[in-house]
Computed example of a mutant assay.
Amino acid sequence: MERIKLTKEEKQAFRIVAEFGGKCPATYPKHVFTASIRSIERKGLVKANYVVGGYVWSAKLTEEGKHYLAVNPNLHNPINWNLILAIVGVLISIIALFVSCMKKY
């Protein structure tokens, strides 16, 4: 399963849904929870019900969300290896340029 990039707030909301069954705790801001749940729902990890004011009434993990949590329990974001390899390649070519341009004594 491919990893999905989640923000810090989305990770917190995802853990809340997994641990507390989708109810927003009293200590957590409702507007942040609602925005995070809407974003996670678009990614297919959570299914939520909303009240008339737009806040989350309840939320639960989808099968894909349960699988994602089982595969990636710490919710680490994916690493862009192509970018890292490109930076390493540029650094190696700069070093090679300086080595080839040095005066030989």
Rank of each mutant, 00 (worst) to 15 (best):
P73W: 03
M102S: 14
P78T: 10
N77W: 15
Y28D: 03
L83R: 15
L75S: 06
G53M: 05
G21H: 06
Y105C: 00
V90W: 11
V51E: 05
K43V: 00
S39T: 01
N77A: 09
S93K: 08
T34R: 14
I16T: 11
T7V: 05
W81E: 12
M102K: 15
T7E: 06
V52K: 13
S39M: 03
L91H: 03
Q12M: 11
F20N: 11
A48R: 04
L69K: 11
V46S: 07
S36I: 05
V56G: 01
A13I: 02
V32E: 10
V52R: 12
K66S: 04
C101K: 15
C24L: 00
G65P: 01
N77H: 13
E41I: 09
R38F: 08
F33M: 01
Q12F: 03
T27K: 08
T34P: 07
L83N: 12
Q12A: 15
V90I: 15
I16V: 13
A26N: 07
F20P: 05
Y28Q: 02
N77G: 06
F98I: 13
K66H: 07
A96D: 07
C101Q: 15
K8V: 09
S36G: 09
I16E: 02
G65S: 09
S58H: 10
L97M: 08
A18I: 06
R15F: 09
E64H: 04
Y55R: 10
K23M: 09
V99M: 15
K11F: 01
Y55M: 07
G89S: 12
Q12V: 13
A70N: 12
K11E: 07
W81H: 09
E19C: 04
I37P: 10
L75N: 04
F14G: 01
R38W: 05
W57S: 07
K103I: 06
V52H: 08
G21S: 10
V90P: 01
G44W: 05
Y55W: 03
K43I: 00
L6C: 04
R38Q: 14
E9L: 11
L6M: 12
A86H: 07
K47S: 08
M1V: 08
V71N: 14
K30D: 12
V32Y: 06
L85V: 08
I16D: 01
L6A: 05
W81R: 13
P73N: 08
A59T: 09
V88M: 14
I94E: 02
S58C: 04
V46K: 04
V32M: 08
R42A: 06
Y50D: 00
S36W: 05
V32K: 12
T7I: 02
I87P: 04
A48D: 05
E63R: 09
S93M: 13
K5Y: 04
N72E: 10
I94D: 01
K104M: 11
P25Y: 04
M1A: 14
